[in-house]
């Protein structure tokens, strides 16, 4: 049984705004019957103010697809079209107190239905380029198509590359066999052979001894390079302090209190260790201040 939040269950058992909206002037049909999800979003838009006066949906799909549709209509009602378009799939998931990684695509479908409906209202054609493959990384909800395309576009050659570019495989690591298979396939297309040991053989540059200032600047640079990934998920990180081997950081936005926070921190710590060439510990600063307070007693 899926670990659905109470909010998801509640919206599934008593969906808001379901059924046909008779005088809708914006309709978006999206979904894939092959995957077992399809959604029709119907909006009534006030032409003078471009405000969504009413929203209804019809959904063929699982519990979280129905709950996501219900949540979407609740979120966008009363919003102006341009504001509604800013609603991300993460917003829908957050509204429902989170969705299991396998089910994040349900919230994506909601956002796409919204885009399609707005395009329909404005007389534009909405085209979706999104193709979904089998879920490979369950920790970060990354599917095979995305991994394949990323490996192809960036000429990736190792599981580590895939983790750095897509996050896939960066959690529990049980999908590494699948990732290796994707690498083998895509590398064969460009006439290369995947070798799991290639990375380990790479010569490791010994970092020279840094001054404190150089070291902190280096840490800042590394964090800056990770930042875009976090911001893509509506989060951020800031450096608070460096105390010997311990690096104190603040997780901001969606990263703060995210279920994946520990995993994200672990990934960041790994990156820092690799780049600095030394062992370091990354600690969220509040926990850090507690620890420091305790050590001064």
């Amino acid at each position: 049984m899926w670990d659905y939040s109470d909010k998801v269950k509640e919206h599934f058992f008593s969906p808001r705004n379901s059924g046909v909206l008779e005088d809708a002037n914006a309709v978006g049909d999206v979904g894939s019957i092959n995957c077992g999800d399809a959604l029709r979003l119907m909006l009534k838009v006030d032409p003078d103010t471009e405000t969504i006066v009413d929203a209804r949906f019809q959904t063929f799909g699982c519990g979280s697809a129905i709950a996501s549709s219900s949540a979407l209509t609740e979120i966008i009602k009363g919003k102006k079209l341009d504001d509604a378009l800013k609603v991300s799939n993460q917003d829908i998931a957050d509204y429902l107190d989170g969705l299991p990684p396998e089910k994040m695509h349900c919230s994506v479908m909601g956002r796409e239905a919204l885009q399609a409906a707005v395009a329909n209202y404005r007389g534009e054609e909405w085209k979706d380029d999104h193709e979904e493959g089998a879920l490979v990384c369950k920790c970060f909800a990354i599917d095979a198509v995305l991994i394949e395309e990323t490996v192809r576009a960036n000429n990736l050659t190792s599981v580590e590359d895939v983790i750095n570019y897509t996050k896939a495989g960066g959690g529990c690591s049980s999908c590494h066999e699948n990732i290796e298979e994707i690498l083998t396939k895509v590398m064969a297309e460009r006439g290369e052979t995947f070798s799991p040991h290639a990375v380990e053989l790479k010569e490791e540059a010994k970092p020279s001894k840094l001054t404190n200032l150089q070291r902190i600047k280096r840490i800042e640079t590394i964090l800056d390079s990770i930042r875009p990934q976090l911001q893509r998920d509506h989060g951020d990180i800031e450096l608070v302090d460096v105390d010997g081997k311990t690096i104190y950081v603040n997780m901001i936005g969606a990263c703060a209190g995210c279920q994946m926070e520990a995993m994200t921190l672990q990934g960041i710590q790994q990156r820092l260790m690799e780049d600095l060439g030394e062992f370091v510990k990354v600690v969220p600063s509040r926990a850090g201040s507690y620890a420091r307070a305790a050590s001064h007693v």
């Binding site: 059924g19 049909d29 999206v30 399809a38 399609a116 999104h130």
Partner: peptide, 25 residues
């Protein structure tokens, strides 16, 4: 079925596959 876009008032929408043909079906 009340929630399903493939289902009409009292039965499947006429030619359900055509009545509801999502963008990337």
């Amino acid at each position: 079925r009340k929630l399903s876009p493939y289902w009409g008032e009292n039965g499947p929408a006429e030619e359900p596959e055509k009545a509801f043909a999502p963008v990337y079906a």
